[in-house]
Design a protein around this nucleic acid. Structure first.
Lengths: 267, 267
DNA sequence: ATAATAGTGTCTTTTAGACACTATAGA
DNA sequence: TCTATAGTGTCTAAAAGACACTATTAT
């Protein structure tokens, strides 16, 4: 265990962010356009260097704020804020041609934002459908029916739908982040992180359908989530924003682990 | 995105290993005694620096080999070798008082070894019951019945049962590793990584009982694991090494994900 | 009216868990 | 014999899934 300070090779340590949201019936990730080589002009995940005396989670929250304006926990508000967790660490010696960089990737789940992402240094941050970034990615089930998880193309004249492949090893990181999100919906209440503070059961169901790329039975889903203790808290109000009969509004309950879990259909 | 090589603070990057096995009816972790400050004389997880052009998983496999003699995949043999996966990364600026060290922890699951761990530089590597290292650790359920997961003390005169707290933030890392192992037994076939190449259903059940710290119904367990496709392959032989009626021997099947999962009892 | 979404009830199939019972070894 | 472990069968309770039906809005 040689801890001679001159005996270890120096590394740069960065955080990269997989920021996911559900918008327009599609699972979307936040990407920025690279303005310089390598991979100039390609899209990449947001991220940056960890500072001298900064914890990894703090660095991830700072980058999130700087590049997207999102806060991982609103100070003083009831808003639970977006969800942030460590995803995995990527350290292939050749992942960055310029130097040895170890990147600690983090996963962020955010509700659909009324205003486009703004307020950051990186003016070019954009939401992009995961299906356009990872055409052959982890199978979203090509869900038959209403699930819109595989929307691939914008209008033909749309110049700006970001497409893969992403820079560096970011395809891999994004793939891992999406799979983590899909898996965690099964046994945690994290789907509510994709929803606004108040939401209906139908809106929550659409989150599951889009992230998993499958169609779920609205009636069984309703019975299941309302029957899981601690998952949903009725907020008292109702809304008709989805059309049809007014739906009860809920907030996320205190439970984080779902028991029994919400298992993905296999088929 | 400033990538000026002089603009980033230098970090040391290490790998730390949570090596778990089941021996003598207890979940055990591999620890080494620290011979120098800080934390001199305390026990710590094995680990070391990542080399200049070494991938993280390669560094973890190398440290495992150097410090324990275990190989993550025996070259040329049918032996599946021990299981190795990335666990999480720990980067608190003050986790090591000497310098800024980011540690990428890895989780290793190994069968009980006939010979004591040997062959490494670190001569002081030892198996220690997790319950002695983490006295208040994640609740093993204090399983009523036959499960021996909470064995805490050696014989009174035994001078050498390593006890916590561990050096640095290794208590936290070990806790996370144990929880990961407990969780993965539920939905993967990883329990076989704790078993020798051929094993009986009873031996596999004892792995679950020790890791989870609960007693399981032998009859229901038998029906469940033999009924899960791809989990177990009959090897043809039988053994009587457990006493009683001869038990069929199995090898690990090809399946990695268990469907349906083996859920932990709650109670 | 029709269409759309919300929500409840009911039935069937599957799975988990409790536990009686038989099988085959060693002491 | 007794005891220990292996393995099968059966019953019950819980959960998943299919789907008929009612409720309440907008157009």
């Amino acid at each position: 265990m040689p801890y001679d300070p001159s005996a270890f090779p120096p590394f740069a340590v960065t955080v990269d962010l997989v920021v996911l949201t559900v918008r327009r019936q599609a699972l979307c990730a936040l990407v920025v356009r690279r303005g310089e080589p390598p991979h100039q002009g390609q899209w990449a995940l947001p991220g940056g260097f960890v500072r001298e005396r900064e914890d990894l989670a703090v660095a991830a929250a700072r980058e999130l704020r700087e590049e997207t304006g999102l806060r991982s926990r609103e100070p003083g508000t009831e808003r639970p804020g977006v969800h942030l967790e460590q995803l995995a660490t990527y350290g292939d010696p050749d992942r960055d041609p310029r130097m040895r960089v170890v990147s600690v990737a983090h996963l962020v789940l955010a509700p659909d934002l009324p205003a486009p992402v703004a307020g950051g240094d990186a003016g070019s941050a954009r939401w992009a459908p995961v299906a356009a970034l990872l055409p052959v990615g982890p199978p979203p089930g090509t869900g038959a029916g209403t699930a819109g998880g595989t929307e691939r193309a914008g209008a033909p004249g749309d110049p700006g739908v970001p497409r893969g492949p992403l820079a560096f090893d970011h395809d891999r990181i994004l793939t891992d982040g999406v799979e983590r999100a899909r898996a965690k919906l099964e046994y945690s209440s994290l789907a509510t992180a994709f929803c606004p503070p108040e939401f209906t059961v139908g809106e929550l169901r659409r989150v599951y359908e889009v992230v998993w790329g499958v169609a779920l039975d609205p009636r069984n889903f309703h019975r299941k989530v309302t029957g899981t203790p601690g998952f949903l808290l009725p907020s008292g109000g109702t809304t008709t924003r989805q059309g049809g009969r007014p739906a009860q509004l809920f907030r996320a309950g205190g439970a984080t682990l779902l028991n029994p879990p919400m298992l993905r259909p296999e088929a």
